[in-house]
Simulated assay, not measured.
Amino acid sequence: MAESDKVFAGSVPKFYDTLMVPLIFEGYAADVAALVAAFSPGAVLETAAGSGAVTRALAPRLGADARYVVTDLNPAMLDYAVTRQPADSRIEWQQADALALPFEDASFDVVLCQFGAMFFPDRVAGYSEARRVLKPGGRFVFSVWDRIEDNAFADDVTRAVATVFPDDPPRFLARTPHGYHDVALIRGDLSRAGFTHIEIRTHEKQSRAPSAREVAIAYCQGTPLRNEIEARDASLLSLATDRAAEAIAARHGTGSVAGKIQAHVIVATG
């Protein structure tokens, strides 16, 4: 993973939340929130919370006495998430590294991480930390994207942007968000972290947007793909976005567009 893959700053958090969240994250957030709430947890830790898509979905489902600690490594994303969340005395916001959690052993009933594990530089270490802070019988619930070929818009954008930089194509989407999809590898990493019961389910959904251009802006300007494009030539950000919009329209039509997205949802105990 390139260092720029972890940078969510400047205008990225707003574009991410207003465009990427409804495009690909919201549906999975609702599913994961329902899954976690069904466990009736008294204490939940969310890591890599991003702009708070899961937080907004889960908080209304938790009990009145629940403790909900929401963390992210990136202060800009966490600060933005706070502005989007209604005041709630049950929620504690804290900047934290999922690989070095500042919490006591056996503190939480559930550790939750939606689409963050792909960014962990050492996933076994991150999973070990999740296990450490879980109470006996607690659950680690997280999700990761499936391969890029099963996520139509991400694949379209990656191929289109490569035409702008043929000698050095930006590969953020394939490398990081869609780079940790092998189920056997995920099981192995969790086992090495000490988890003994691992359930993995693959969920396909449809990603929808009012236009191809909105999808292109979301991916090219609302994710760290923007960092890769600007590092090569900031003046070509608009062209890269245009190429992505054209590719999506060519494949999915003009007007409103829809494309397949697919992810793995994992529940681990041990």
Rank of each mutant, 00 (worst) to 15 (best):
E3R: 12
D17M: 09
L19C: 06
M20H: 02
P22H: 10
E26A: 14
E26W: 05
Y28R: 00
A29N: 07
A33E: 06
L35V: 11
L35M: 14
L45K: 01
L45M: 06
A49I: 00
V54G: 09
T55L: 12
R56I: 02
A59I: 04
L62N: 08
L62S: 11
A64H: 15
D65G: 13
R67A: 11
R67S: 09
N74Y: 12
P75R: 12
Y80N: 13
V82F: 10
L99G: 14
L101W: 09
A106L: 05
D109L: 07
L112I: 06
V124D: 04
A125L: 11
E129H: 01
R131G: 14
G137R: 08
V141R: 00
F142D: 00
F142E: 00
V144T: 12
I148T: 11
E149Y: 14
D155C: 12
F165P: 01
P166C: 02
D167C: 03
D168N: 10
L185Q: 11
L185V: 10
R192H: 04
F195R: 08
T196F: 02
Q206H: 03
R208L: 03
R213D: 01
E214A: 06
V215N: 05
Y219T: 07
L225E: 02
N227M: 14
N227D: 05
N227V: 10
R232E: 00
D233K: 15
A240K: 10
R243A: 11
A244W: 00
E246N: 13
A249V: 00
A249D: 00
Q262M: 12
A263H: 03
V265N: 04
I266F: 08
